[in-house]
Design a protein around this nucleic acid. Structure first.
Lengths: 115, 115
DNA sequence: CAGAATCCCTAATGATACTG
DNA sequence: CAGTATCATTAGGGATTCTG
C-alpha cells in the first residue's frame, strides 16, 4: 500500500514513467499495437526501456499483453478497460501539445515512417 | 525550436518534470502560493528541486513569480493565463488519482500540516 | 524567507550481446 | 520478432553551506 501526499501522485505513479504517456497515446489510436510498431513509432526509445515501461503498465493493469504462440513471435499490447479510464487525460495531454506547438516555434519531426 | 515525434511530447516537455504536476495542482487551488507554502505542501521536495521546477515552469510561461521587496523576502507564485490552459489536464489527473486511490489499497498520508 | 552554489552519489538509462 | 542479461554511463537529484 502506497501513501501519497496528494492524490495526483497516484496518477503520476502510474503514468509518470519517461515513455508511458507516449506509449499510451499511441495505443489509444486504435487500442492495439505490436511491439515492433511501438518501437518504430517511438524511434528514440530503446528495446530495454520499451519493454520495461510496458511491463510496468501491465503490472498496473493499464495495458494487456497478448502473446501469439508462433514463430516468429508476435506480441500485441492493448489498453485494458482500466486503461481506457485514462482516455480523457491522454487526449487532453495530446490536444494541449498540439495547441502548444501551434502557438510556439516548436514543431514535429519529419515522420520517418510511412504509416 | 524543438522537434517532437508526437505532439504530446510537447506537453510532457512542459509538465513532465518530477514535481511540476504536483506544484501546479497546488497552485490551481487558489491560484497563488508562497514558496514556503509549497515547500510545506510538498514535504519530500528539496529547496533545490522546488526552485528548479518553479524556474522551468516560469520560463515556459506557465507560472508567474511575484517578488515583494521587503525583509524578510516574500515571493508568490501563481498560474499565468497560459498556465490555466492546463486546468483541464490537471484536474483530470487529480480526479483520476482520487478514483485510483479509492479503488486500490493505496491511500493518503496523514496530513502533517494543519490547514 | 527565498534561493544560489557546491559537492557528491545513486538510480535511471543507454549500448551491446545473446536467446527462444 | 520479442525479450533478457550485462556492463557502462550519466544526469537527475540529495545534502550542505552560504547569501541578501
Amino acid at each position: 500500500m502506497k501513501q501519497y501526499n496528494i492524490p495526483v501522485e497516484a496518477t503520476l505513479d502510474v503514468i509518470g514513467g519517461k515513455w508511458k504517456v507516449v506509449i499510451l497515446c499511441h495505443l489509444i489510436d486504435n487500442g492495439t499495437k505490436r511491439t515492433g510498431e511501438l518501437k518504430r513509432l517511438i524511434p528514440e526509445i530503446t528495446q530495454k526501456m520499451l519493454t520495461q515501461q510496458l511491463r510496468e503498465l501491465e503490472d498496473d493493469g493499464i495495458i494487456e499483453r497478448r502473446v501469439y504462440n508462433q514463430v516468429p513471435p508476435k506480441v500485441e499490447y492493448s489498453l485494458t478497460e482500466y486503461g481506457w479510464s485514462l482516455e480523457k487525460i491522454l487526449t487532453s495531454l495530446c490536444t494541449w501539445g498540439e495547441e502548444h506547438i501551434a502557438q510556439t516555434g516548436d514543431g514535429l519531426k519529419k515522420d520517418p515512417i510511412e504509416s
